[in-house]
Amino acid sequence: MSAITLDNITKTYNKGTVLAVDKATFEVAEGETFGLIGPDGAGKTSIFRVLTTLLLAESGNATVAGFDVVKEYAKIRDCIGYMPGRFSLYQDLTVEENLNFFATIFNTSIKENYDLIKDIYVQIEPFKDRRAGKLSGGMKQKLALCCALIHKPRVLFLDEPTTGVDAVSRVEFWDMLKRLKHQGISILVSTPYMDEAALCDKIALIEGGKILSIASPADTVKKYPGKLFAVKSANMHKLLQDLRSYEGTYSCFTFGDAMHLSFKQDADADVSKLTAYLTAKGQTNLEIAEITAGIEDYFIRITEKLNG
């Protein structure tokens, strides 16, 4: 059985004038970590709310843990954990009180499922008497995850759990998710960080309410059409303009300390011709190398097409 299925789910707002989710269809297998990757406003949160039975879709069908999101919403609520994008625990309750509260409404206790949260909870346990509102961002995030897990959900929904979190804490958070996966929990997680996509079993790229690609991270980047070069020079700011005006260029974008350059056709991917062109433009210290596309390269490539 699939942990989650979506079949042509469409969600609109403002009496149909705003199309938030446009016929989204995908499936999350049992035990899988599935990433929904896209920028703010792409429709990620609307999908989460439909699946967690907080919003009704206009059309389409969806199931979670085998239950229908409309007819069997109560059963779904019993067996899922949901960590919304915005911190939504009780600010005036302490860490321990929050956790107790969530355990109690799901008819369980901290003790009963302590194993599941232990790794995460020990990190915030020294602060268990502190009010949740007084916690720092990273600790709030850990507490929210504990509260979403305390009733041992079958499916876990994490809406942008790492937004605004620094790079080190993001790595730690994904380590925690890996351990949960070993416990057999199916996870749907959304993120605007493309580098996190590689840590999922499968990813869906989403933009403008449309699912644009569904595949494993490795297969996603294999879909990148044509060749891709990384180019560096002594004057990076001018390099971008020079590369964009090169006749064989399809597109060029900055990626950290290099420019990623794609071509109209493979025949244009000619290092010696490109070197001659850039040298004539006065560029020095040139480094040109063919590279394998990453998920962000692919995302830019397919959304560019969409936008124009």
């Binding site: 937004t163 605007p192 933009e207 995302f299």
Partner: peptide, 8 residues
């Protein structure tokens, strides 16, 4: 730039 798409 938090949360915006890669091109933006």
């Amino acid at each position: 730039t938090g949360g915006v798409d890669p091109v933006t």
